[in-house]
Design a protein around this nucleic acid. Structure first.
Length: 649
RNA sequence: GCCGGAGUAGCUCAGGGGUAGAGCGCAUCCUUGGUAAGGAUGAGGUCACGAGUUCAAUUCUCGUCUUCGGCUCCA
């Protein structure tokens, strides 16, 4: 007998060689039906693999990431089986799982192509194969056998993979007529896969290297229940409707012009209004937290960026310097604000008593992004960071870092982002060439972040190798209303720039000391943030933020004068109001303005004009009855105050 | 940057070797209305740009630009 420890630390005895499935079945038959894979001492295993000794285990269902991974991994194999059925000479690359679903990179036989039209056929075949409920069997194989097997098959891709593996660790998985090189784990049988959608087909280089052959990548997603697939497809539809590029156009928030250039957004009046509202909000918060606003030019001497190290790192792959005609001086469109801010810091000597110095700027920066990377407002060549740099003493670092975390949460609260994770990005000690600065400073910086997160009790994940080249960082990812993750704010600790710019302060010991810098941008960039906000809210922005809060709808032109009086009154009361005095019936005006996502529609006609009232209609909710004008102003101001209460006052 | 789609009116899109169409929007007129589409008339296009094939190109071919889906990249 062996001892099996469950996640609740209860221990059960089972015969040696018991499988994950048998353990699940012993607990409950319902669990046995739902379980997909099992972690054995921290390693995810097939349910059918015998456990030979004492072990800690955790059973994974669909709700676990590990469960989904197993499910989608097997689905990728099922897809490969279907592809092999139709195109027997196909060579298979890798078929991993991704956030939602899986893909397989394949090399189709000479002259064959796969297009979106073929996907339906493959889906049908996959479901047909799934209904056969074929067992998925694991088999260990020697390296020599694996090499001869894939040589025989002529599968050069798998051969390349096998050659890189160590003997004794190579496993094959088979189901029906299909066998694949694979580390596993997999579902016990293909019958658990009840619903499949192949979502797209695209080109991808073998092993992500553009020098290699372009393979065909087929993306898909699968589910244990048809209903789940339907929900997923509905979510995709909804995501399409919320696409910020579509809504941005509809709501006249921003546009692009070929004449201006790709990746250079033009903010239209309503978009600019929205953005300024966000900026003003953050400025107020920052004032409370002791920041000073600064303004710096859009270009800087190229030597500034040589000092900072940015030029060496990115210069040649970026926008090239601008030259002055007479002197031949070289200037760079600024890709970062920090060097300018360092020079502001240097403009006067600093005492330890002055620190921290917190310098904020909505700084527009220009970066060359590869043309294929540009995407709406989320990836552009000119964008404005809600940037700030905090110059502080080493002993202040952690506290300052924690205050920045507080600001980020104020923003999340104001905009109703409830679900976040914070990613701590550390350097990869194996690739020291990628980073500048001394290992000692890196250690201190990484430690400060880890401790600050711990003390703030943040929900964090740690990624090694994701640090910026000058320092470690903490990035915030939020989940939007559709459950999609977006990276927004960032906080970065930097010992390097102060050194490169020779920044100093005079300590209480009357000696020169080096300050530490924190780079931080809670929104990230205004462009990207607005894009995320559009998709999160589907364009229905919170009342405090939305560019047009109220629209006046006169019943007929007889009441236009009264409507205009109300319009002036509301605008003078700082309520952003417009009027729709087109020659249209009231039903038509209501419909059009409901679709424009304006929160309040005020209908005015004879009744209202006589009594100095308005008839209130809430967008998406319908008629709310009539209100006196003063009463309505108070009501709106109250609603705005409630949304922002306690955040900066 | 690389692979593959796409580019026709302000917007969404149909069409196709003989120089263009719909709906919405816009303008004018009729209607003056009470909580999600009243009616009529009209203006709007170098069919992304450049070259080639052809008697004739918006349509076919090539190149360029932009855009979309991926890949790689992201201070």
């Amino acid at each position: 007998m062996i001892k099996i420890t469950l996640p609740d630390n209860s221990i059960k005895e089972f015969p040696k060689g018991v499988t994950g499935y048998e353990i699940a079945d012993a607990i409950s038959s319902r669990l046995a039906k739902e379980v997909l894979s099992v972690s054995v001492n921290g390693e995810v295993w097939d349910l059918t693999r015998p456990i030979e000794g004492d072990a800690h285990i955790k059973l994974h269902k669909w709700d676990d990431r590990e469960g989904k991974d197993t499910f989608w991994h097997s689905s990728a194999h099922l897809m490969a089986e279907a592809i092999e059925f139709f195109y027997p000479e196909t060579k298979f690359g890798i078929g991993p799982t991704i956030d939602t679903g899986f893909y397989y990179d394949i090399d189709l036989p000479e002259g064959r192509q796969l297009s979106e039209k073929d996907l339906e056929k493959l889906e049908k075949k996959m479901l047909e194969l799934a209904r056969e409920k074929n067992d998925i069997a694991r088999r260990e194989i020697s390296k020599a056998d694996a090499i001869s097997m894939f040589s025989e098959k002529g599968d050069v891709l798998k051969l390349e993979l096998v050659n890189e593996l160590e003997d004794g660790t190579i496993t094959l998985y088979s189901q029906g007529n299909f066998t694949d090189l694979c580390r596993g784990p997999h579902l016990p049988n293909t019958g658990l896969i009840k619903a499949v959608k192949l979502t797209s087909v695209a080109g991808a280089y073998w092993r992500g290297d553009e020098k290699n052959k372009m393979l065909t990548r087929v993306y898909g997603v699968s589910f244990p229940k048809q209903k789940m697939l339907n929900e997923y497809l509905e979510m995709l539809e909804e995501a399409k409707k919320r696409d910020h590029r579509k809504i941005g156009k509809e709501m006249e928030l921003f546009t692009f012009s070929e004449a201006v250039g790709q990746g250079l957004p033009l903010w239209l009046p309503k978009g600019a209004q929205l953005r300024m509202q966000l900026e003003d909000f953050l400025k107020k918060v920052q004032r409370k937290y002791g920041y000073d606003q600064v303004i710096t030019p859009h270009i800087g001497d190229v030597r500034l960026y040589k000092t900072s190290g940015h030029y060496q790192k990115y210069g040649k792959d970026s926008f090239q310097p601008i030259k002055t005609p007479a002197e031949g001086e070289e200037y760079l469109l600024k890709p970062m604000n920090c060097p300018h801010h360092c020079e502001i810091y240097k403009a006067k000597p600093h005492s330890y008593k002055d620190l921290p110095v917190r310098m904020a700027e909505f700084g527009t920066v220009y970066r060359y992004e590869q043309s294929g990377e540009l995407h709406g407002l989320t990836r552009v060549r000119s964008f404005t960071q809600d940037d700030a740099h905090i110059f502080c003493r080493p002993d202040q670092l952690k506290d300052e870092f924690k205050k920045v975390i507080d600001i980020i949460f104020i923003i999340f609260k104001a905009l109703d982002f409830k679900d976040y994770t914070a990613q701590i990005s550390l350097r990869d000690p194996n690739t020291p060439d990628k980073y500048i600065g001394s290992p000692g400073n890196w250690d201190k910086a990484e430690q400060a972040i880890i401790e600050a997160c711990g003390e703030k009790k943040l929900n964090t994940v740690t990624e090694v190798g994701e640090a910026a080249f000058y320092g470690p960082k903490l990035d915030f990812m939020i989940k939007d209303a559709l459950g999609r993750s977006w990276q927004l704010g960032t906080i970065q600790v930097d010992y390097n720039l102060p050194e490169r710019f020779n920044l100093e302060y005079i300590g209480s010991d009357d000696q020169r000391h080096r300050p530490v810098m924190i780079h931080r941008a809670p929104f990230g960039s205004m462009e990207r943030f607005v894009a995320v906000l559009i998709e999160h809210t589907a364009g229905k922005f919170p009342l405090w933020l939305t560019p047009e809060q109220v629209v006046l709808l006169p019943i007929s032109k007889k009441y236009n004068d009264y409507a205009k009086k109300v319009l002036n009154f509301l605008n003078n009361s700082d309520i952003r109001t417009i009027i729709d005095d087109r020659n249209e019936k009231i039903g038509k005006k209501i419909r059009d303005n409901e679709l424009k996502r304006i929160p309040y529609l005020l209908i005015v006609g004879e009744k209202e004009a006589e009594t100095d009232t308005i008839s209130v209609r809430r967008q998406g909710e319908g008629d709310k009855g009539s209100m006196a004008l003063n009463e309505f102003v108070e009501f709106i101001k109250d609603a705005v105050k409630k949304q922002l209460s306690g955040l900066y006052n």
